[in-house]
Design a protein around this nucleic acid. Structure first.
Lengths: 226, 226
DNA sequence: GCCGGGGTGGCACGTTGCTGCCAGCCCGCG
DNA sequence: CGCGGGCTGGCAGCAACGTGCCACCCCGGC
């Protein structure tokens, strides 16, 4: 049972063609605009061009409005400039979240009807694949939505001192594991073969690195970082 | 630029056809078999039939072996029977993780070359869409891999008393928020308008519900549950 | 050798978190 | 009305956590 609707899978080259061929599609979002990317680079040129063309949809958080959901990775929080842009996006009514898992390929799903996947660069122009085959769109949407669900709200990530997780050493990981196992300090220190005093020093250093003021918060933040 | 390779997107009806038409494909996995589903129901009949046909690949955890990665949701931990089956899968060399986000549609990606997405049931037979278009496969793989990355190892979820998160009340959420904000008990109790004693009672109840023995662990578990 | 720096462990003390006990309060029930 | 049950808050005592201080190493430089 081959699928062949000529328009089921279409590959476009470059943002210009994306805007020309799929601009109407993108601007026609009515219920949900779900978008995932590692940072702000990929879609910015293409889709901003579409929306700035005087057809930016009104974002209403209400039940019948368009839900604009964007997931990025921590790389989108890299520099203050990107952070500001993200904050601006969020202020404009979009829901922005930060995923701690990598999103290697950018993806958009519009109203559960159309998916757009970015390919790699080829001859200077990025390719975009527009999919309208329902099963594929639904599959992509469910996966992208899972990433959305698993991600943190931008607001919870902005002030975090550990926006860039500091790549902990081997010992820190062991301490973290002991903490996460629910051991008391005494038991943990014995297991790790260090004195109670030193163990507590390690914990204090970890908490400082995470920016936590209580152990509960440290647990939450440690999981956010992985 | 239409895509047409006749085999780029093929939809199959029912597990029998899946095995007949895509069995070789599934059994030919060499480097990575990445699979996501809400529970053990969907793929079991189809892919088990393929593998039990004497072509189960050898799972080697080494660098050149086949990495069999499976992500399920907490629903796969529903009953002890499913738990045992999951443990058996893990024991056979597959890496099994539990995602706290919903995976509405089942998906497989094989060696980064082929994706198979499950559709909804139609006339008693579930449909399976086999995709070999590289951009689409890569997009699906990156999303599925993100779900894999964000998920917890099965071992960390098996003993958890809160495998089924108990749908906390409004007040419990407020307590959790106060804890996650890093407040001291005193400050949190003031903010929530209750006495220190009562606040600590709430915290103790929460920790019991989560099965945590330390606040750090409670923080970790609370985030695992959402 | 001596010296200084960095990491460690012991000790003491203060803070925070945990819980058993009891008194009070509100409610529904007989 | 009395009575019991459930929830609350205060108190006390204990366990756990956090940290400043100091003595003790181990090392590398002078």
């Amino acid at each position: 049972m081959e699928h062949g609707g000529a328009a089921a899978v279409v590959t476009l080259r470059g943002e210009a063609e994306l805007v020309r061929r799929a601009g109407d599609l993108i601007a026609s979002a009515r219920t949900e605009y779900l978008c995932g990317a590692t940072d702000l680079v990929t879609w910015s040129a293409g889709t901003n061009a579409v929306f700035n063309d005087g057809r930016r949809p009104r974002l209403r958080p209400g039940p019948d409005g368009l839900a604009m959901r964007k997931v990025y990775t921590r790389q989108a929080l890299g520099d203050p400039e990107s952070e500001r842009r993200l904050a601006r996006i969020a202020a404009s009514g979009a829901q922005v979240r930060i995923s701690s898992a990598p999103l290697a390929r950018e993806a958009i799903v519009i109203d559960g009807r159309v998916a757009i996947l970015a390919g790699s660069e080829a001859r200077g122009a990025r390719t975009y694949t527009v999919i309208s085959e329902p099963v594929v769109v639904e599959g992509v949407r469910s996966l992208l939505y899972a990433a959305w669900e698993a991600a943190d709200d931008l607001a919870d990530c902005l002030g975090a001192p550990a926006a860039r997780p500091p790549v902990l050493g081997e010992e820190s990981r062991a301490v973290l594991a002991a903490l996460a196992a629910g051991l008391t300090d005494e038991a943990a220190a014995r297991r790790l073969g260090m004195s109670l005093r030193t163990y507590r020093r390690r914990v204090a250093a970890l908490m400082a690195e995470l920016g936590a003021t209580s152990r509960f918060q440290a647990g939450v933040l440690s999981r956010r970082a992985g």
